[in-house]
Nucleic acid binder design. Structure first.
Lengths: 341, 341
DNA sequence: ACGTTTTCCGTAAACGTTTACGAGAACACA
DNA sequence: TGTGTTCTCGTAAACGTTTACGGAAAACGT
């Protein structure tokens, strides 16, 4: 059905080698011949079969992003990733690469899907998100020597892969600074369980700032919960029932903040009046929630572009001049003051 | 680097043909030999090269979903699609197919990306969303004979492709019924411009119900806007400044509703008190907005599964017994009453 | 003991590309 | 005229699979 390079060759009465060279812009082909090949290609609307091409070249010219919905949270999507992916896609397209997003099943933490993509060589590199403190995916990829980049840091896999992360330490620290400046001293911190790395970074910043202000870190004010609304709902009362009630809470995730606010409402505690609520990664939900949640906002689309660039620079086939390799970057979050604190 | 079928054959001292047959579960291979092949495959952790396989078979065993962010709306993602994709992915995986999500650049309405996927044969079929009344993508695919399915109806491309849509007519009609029952007679309708098909369906239902109740359809109460928050914000005042002010508004899109409510707030009009607001497709944003928006909710994950099933049934390679082909289905939306109406 | 069927496996072609190699023709230069 | 260089192209191998075909050996039937 679809026309192949052989059809073109037969049609023009030349060899397939010449057709291929003409199409790929090689130098050793007559300008006139090239012209005729390009015309014929358009006429028969030929385009190269990707399977044939990648089989021969050993490269698929596409990058995979592993997207995974949180388990047990079907209604809540990941608005977070769309702008990021938009940026990623845009930059990759500029280098002639396709972005494909591989959906994982909720819960398997991608190991299975990831192996599948890697082992069947469906992509030339992968991009990981939701990095954990110790991340088996990173270990797997480095061990296998498969190129990748991560959105988020990790302690796994040596230091030789590109990664781009948000400055959660700074955000945690800034959040505390701001609250202390406004008179708070009992400040709770709620972060996701599992061992998502950003939860640790956030907590480091939180602790550092507290100490800097001479405030003792109270373990009773720190809680881990499942990273969704139910998790926030479940865990928030725990810190509120602490011996000496907190006057502020910093949530390390938007969905958890939403659940937390629901719990607070049921206790008759109003964010913005009775308690100050800050959330670390801003999403549209924070903006529309009532009261609108004060939050730290990332600039996702530029981050996507940037990570694509870093990844490209790390791939031998695309690397620019030596020394342009960017290994890791940490980007700031911008405070958006709303009504909840 | 990666082991091929030749490595296995050499290692076991048998031919590659036998190895392939053993791996693919063909009957004409000795049980003992098969055992040894499988063991060796595990040992050398072999897995088939997808390019080689699809080149030979003329099929990639993967389905592409074309995902596209709305132009000029970077912050607002598409939480809508994640549960849908989860269902789609799950069902496809059961048949051994991979789902890949192809990101389009905002604005080009996917023609370019779509052509790329189709012409380079990166997938065996594609799934389209955001169907328009007349949809060039559908025309393109039918003309080319490329298998596809759509989330949403269209008037393009004959009737022979699987499509699954929500019952926007019924939702529009039900929304009006409910409002009329509560005493409203001046009911505005705001829908997306472009010619997204569901906007027409919604309006059909709206008009039908109005007529049924003996209420004249006032063109001044119907407005089209760009399908995002800014669009809703911009267009809502237009219907509110109508000669005889509406007492209710039905928004055909969540983002537009959010923008509309912002405009209303600036006019000092409170949804739930001064005006009834209903939105047709519910998303998490509606739930968290204040006041929480009464909305019609789809069940996205089952829809994803179902559309996958319909698509599979339409592919010759996967079709079950004849007559099981499902061409089109329309699913109901469920009313979720909240505070805004 | 002999013909027939079944079981199992090797051979080789094919899928659509890219590319190393070499060869003929044209050209330049002395 | 002879030699070297440059252009341009054809040939054929290779990438990793799957599969049609045929044949050897084993099993079976009489």
């Amino acid at each position: 059905m679809a026309s192949s390079i052989h059809d073109l060759a037969r049609h023009l009465n030349i060899s397939i080698g010449t057709v291929s060279r003409a199409l790929n812009g090689r130098a050793d082909v007559n300008a006139d011949t090239r012209q005729r090949v390009l015309e014929a290609a358009r006429e028969l609307n030929y385009s190269p079969n990707q399977s044939g091409r990648s089989l021969r070249q050993g490269a698929t010219r596409s990058i995979a992003f592993m997207l995974q919905p949180h388990p047990g949270d079907q209604q809540y999507g990941e608005p977070f990733f769309i702008p990021f992916l938009t940026g990623l896609q845009a930059r990759l397209a500029e280098s002639g690469l396709d972005l494909i997003v591989v959906m994982g099943a909720p819960g398997d933490y991608q190991q299975e899907r990831l192996r599948r993509v890697v082992e069947t060589r469906r992509a030339d590199a992968v991009v990981l998100a939701w990095t954990r403190r110790e991340d088996e995916r990173i270990d797997y990829l480095t061990e296998r020597g498969f190129p990748f980049a991560t959105l988020g840091r990790s302690r796994s896999g040596g230091k030789s892969y590109p990664s781009l992360d948000l400055d959660f330490e700074k955000a945690g620290s800034d959040a505390v600074d701001r609250l202390v400046a406004r008179g708070h001293r009992r400040i709770a911190a709620i972060r996701p369980a599992l061992n998502l790395n950003f939860g640790y970074l956030f907590l480091d910043g939180y602790r550092e700032a507290l100490k800097r202000h001479g405030i003792e870190v109270d373990p009773g004010l720190i809680a881990d919960g499942f990273i969704n609304e139910a998790g926030g709902y479940q865990v928030t009362p725990r810190v509120m029932l602490s011996r000496d009630r907190p006057t502020a809470i910093i949530f390390n995730n938007d969905a958890m903040a939403l659940g937390g606010c629901k719990a607070l409402a049921e206790m008759g505690i109003r964010p913005g009046h009775d308690i100050a609520v800050t959330v670390i990664v801003d999403t549209p939900l924070c903006r529309y929630f009532s009261p609108a949640l004060t939050a730290f906002r990332p600039s996702l689309e530029p981050m996507g572009r940037r990570l694509a660039e870093m990844l490209l620079a790390s791939l031998p086939a695309f690397a620019g001049p030596e020394g342009t390799r960017i290994i890791r970057e940490v980007w700031p979050l911008e405070l958006v003051v709303r009504e909840s604190d």
